[in-house]
Write a protein that binds this DNA or RNA. Sequence first.
DNA 1: GATGAATGAGATTTCATTCAT
DNA 2: TATGAATGAAATCTCATTCAT
Lengths: 217, 217, 217, 217
Amino acid sequence: MSAVRTRSAPQDRRQAILDAAVRVFARRGFHACRVSDIADEAGVAYGLVYHYFGSKDSVLDTLFLERWNVMLDMIAEVDATEASAREKLYAIASFIVDSYRHDPDLMKVIIVDVTRAANSFGQTHLARIREAYRRIAAIVEGAQRQGAFKAEIDAEFAAMAFYGAIEQMLTGWIFEMLPADEEHYERAKRLVVETICGGLEISGASHGRRDADRDGD
Amino acid sequence: MSAVRTRSAPQDRRQAILDAAVRVFARRGFHACRVSDIADEAGVAYGLVYHYFGSKDSVLDTLFLERWNVMLDMIAEVDATEASAREKLYAIASFIVDSYRHDPDLMKVIIVDVTRAANSFGQTHLARIREAYRRIAAIVEGAQRQGAFKAEIDAEFAAMAFYGAIEQMLTGWIFEMLPADEEHYERAKRLVVETICGGLEISGASHGRRDADRDGD
Amino acid sequence: MSAVRTRSAPQDRRQAILDAAVRVFARRGFHACRVSDIADEAGVAYGLVYHYFGSKDSVLDTLFLERWNVMLDMIAEVDATEASAREKLYAIASFIVDSYRHDPDLMKVIIVDVTRAANSFGQTHLARIREAYRRIAAIVEGAQRQGAFKAEIDAEFAAMAFYGAIEQMLTGWIFEMLPADEEHYERAKRLVVETICGGLEISGASHGRRDADRDGD
Amino acid sequence: MSAVRTRSAPQDRRQAILDAAVRVFARRGFHACRVSDIADEAGVAYGLVYHYFGSKDSVLDTLFLERWNVMLDMIAEVDATEASAREKLYAIASFIVDSYRHDPDLMKVIIVDVTRAANSFGQTHLARIREAYRRIAAIVEGAQRQGAFKAEIDAEFAAMAFYGAIEQMLTGWIFEMLPADEEHYERAKRLVVETICGGLEISGASHGRRDADRDGD
DNA sequence: GATGAATGAGATTTCATTCAT
DNA sequence: TATGAATGAAATCTCATTCAT
């Protein structure tokens, strides 16, 4: 369709740097990578990394924020629907697991070098990371108000446990401690929702769902 | 009992260095700390750190291994008892939460700079860290064999979810995202056990236990 | 007179770059300014700076040489007149002070980044800068030959002292160490001429001149 | 006297670095020198420069301040004596010229890279530099109060002219524009004092001094 | 045991300049 | 003319580790 170009469009190079950064960060970790590793992987001079991004940090910031914001938006959208809390939490677990399935390198970088790097980037993006926990907690609170979840459980703790369980399973995949295939991805989603919701739901309160689930046991 | 000493015994200095390392690592993170920061905090010359420990890494290794091995032993002991899986998992959750309550700085260092530092110390100690997951998974498998837990759930995934949920709550305390007091520590233990076991147990199979747990609160 | 132009003439751009350079160099110094700072100030792309000038250095060279040559010409012209040495030196002091009054930014750049930057541009333009001292020295020598100035004083030293005194006062204005207003500009001219000539003149030899100067003030 | 040592005392190294810095800064200027140039010249690893001085800047700061403070003290001492203003100014000119005679490299560095580097170190040490001008101005003011110097001349301008004249002559020696030998050093001192004071003194007021000075020629 | 001066590999970042469009 | 993406040499500074005393 479009004419053959002997030279890439400017934005291609920027994106190429981001893509290369994901690969090298995933391979050896953000701190072990030099800017020249990114540039070499992208096939550009390293000065260009500084042309598009102000610093090495800024490259990781960009990778993280672009993806994290998508997740925050997704949670907000899900929460705005009429679905049950269990369905909402399943959607979130699904999104995260599918994100990993779709781009495991990017998710590895985000988890290992940002959300779990509490003394460096985790600190920098703390507010943004907390926002995710808060939105998950909001879903739990909603379910508590509607009588679906037990009121005596701290929504924030439940949200942390839920998110922590998912992230740890991703960590298991990342470091090849857990089997990673389509079947296990799906089972992981169900596991985390069932276990967490199983303990949160009031017996009988969510009959349709719970019974359906139990029937499947 | 002990003779009055005008000069600290050699081992006191070694321990003073370890204690100082916990404080400075907790404060700013392992990577941001220089060897001289440890030495300054301990009130010794930094050459002495190299006398007792071969390297900066070795200091963290020591801190991690000493504590982690205690946990591994504890899990093994717990698993050797006749208690129910739920009780065993509760004991583990208790141990971890109490470890944090007793020495939050040390636990912060272990979690932030080792178990979650997947590209540096997490890598080094991967085998030892996995051993903990494996032992937890063994408890789940035992319960599955005894018919208390659903057989179709992957024990390793369940173990990861369980451990991940606990670690994330500790992270919440560490970074002051969750309220940290005696009451919440206890509720956190119950939350993680109830939610995880709630989804793992076969309906009715553990009722007695669950009630027993509640009575004990 | 001139035709209406919807687009600046080429030379306007070149001049705009020079004018912008004076402003940014005066603000932060030549070395602290990037080529892009000049271009931004001029409202052009920085590639254009390289179109009109071969390098960043060349911009400063141009600024310096254009002005310095005017001064050299002025000294030569003054020396060619029949005026007394005192009058000639007064004319030079006047020219320099008035240059500062007229365009303080340009003079700041010339003094700070060229004549006093002995290890960079001062080195490059040393010959041209010395030429000014030499021409001033020539005036002193002329006065010595005519018996107006003491013969035993080194003309070159006197020229340096004279020029140094003026430049230092300009420096005082540039860095707001001295009051800068019309009255002080005029007093500075007289001060430097009177003090320097006061020590150079043979007692009684220049009385008439001195009185003449005073009458003219 | 002292035993032969195969290893220099710690402070020797620090001083060796300072001495080396003077040599390389004088040779090529502060900005053109890398830290490794200093270290190479001193025969030490460049990490040692950072051991003793926090930064490259700090090396120059140290060189400047140590010498400049000596001069400030000298001016204060001189001003505290009962000497005439002319004698005081002569003492200052003498000190500066002798400083150059004694250690031309150090004076070159101080003048070229600090007092005349208005956009870098001159800025940093502006207050300290001004203090020298102020103290010289104080001498002029004292002479004005005593009726030795004309009251209508701005003392601060006179101080600037005086200092500027000396510094410019040093610059002349530094860049080999003026003959530098014992005879010329002495003549330069007299020239600057005679010319400046010649214009400042009230006719007849200082005849005794002037004659005395002249007798000494 | 204890000290801290000395070492130097290695990382980030800046920015003048080139050149395809 | 005019643009600004692309290049890469070069410089500062950090800090774990060694080792003579």
